[in-house]
């Protein structure tokens, strides 16, 4: 592939990104190729050493901020008049459905969080029980009520054990939910940018 072919296929691969970003990218790679050729490389060698066009294009895309990616998707296709009319007429139907879908997803997400947090609250409650039990058993011990002191001490140890297990579990769960959220967002971003590539 020569320089012209490389640049035009890069242009083609990036046809849908904002014009300014496209021009800058093409300028950059054009300069890179010229410098390599000036350095004694043949045109073909320069092009092949710069790398694969689709890889370069996807890297440039991946580096665009999310709002730009979203904006790129919007003006892809002009809506026909009857589509616009249909959209407006249908809005009492699809708007509430879309909104409720969104709310349902949000509430599912919140329910997951509240479950995890309530588990955490129980763990904290158990820790409080453990501390109180120890204090009470110490007081009983001071009043020479050995039997009660031993009973309270044993029970609070059990509480303590449970609270440690619950704490570990809930910390794990919190981390898990955070990870899930992150991967969902990442997945969404990937999908957005990948669709752009496929649309070529």
């Amino acid at each position: 592939m020569n320089k012209e072919a490389f640049l035009s296929s890069l242009r083609h691969a990036l046809a849908d990104i904002p014009q300014e970003d496209l021009e800058k990218s093409v300028e950059f790679y054009s300069e890179m190729l010229d410098d390599r050729i000036e350095d004694g490389m043949t045109e073909e060698a320069a092009v092949s050493s710069v790398g694969d066009v689709s890889e370069i294009a996807s890297q440039i895309r991946a580096d665009l901020p999310l709002p730009t990616l979203m904006r790129m998707k919007m003006p892809r296709r002009q809506l026909r008049p009857w589509e616009i009319i249909l959209l407006i007429l249908g809005s009492p139907v699809w708007l509430p459905i879309l909104a409720s879908l969104f709310i349902i997803l949000l509430s599912v997400y919140l329910v997951i969080w509240s479950l995890v947090l309530s588990l955490f609250a129980v763990a904290i409650y158990l820790i409080c029980g453990f501390v109180c039990g120890i204090v009470l058993s110490a007081l009983n011990y001071l009043h020479v009520d050995l039997l009660h002191a031993a009973l309270l001490f044993g029970m609070s140890c059990i509480l303590g054990g449970f609270s440690i297990i619950l704490c570990m579990l809930s910390v794990r769960l919190i981390k898990g939910v955070c990870k899930l959220t992150k991967s969902c967002v990442l997945h969404l971003k990937c999908r957005l940018s990948r669709k752009e590539v496929k649309a070529q």
């Binding site: 950059f28 300069e31 890179m32 410098d35 390599r36 890297q59 580096d63």
Partner: peptide, 26 residues
Amino acid sequence: SYGYQIIKDIKPYIDISESTLYPILR
């Protein structure tokens, strides 16, 4: 310095290519 020169200067120390340099410069 300019793009190609930057790549030549850095390459002995750390692997870099045009496609990585471009986003960094931006």
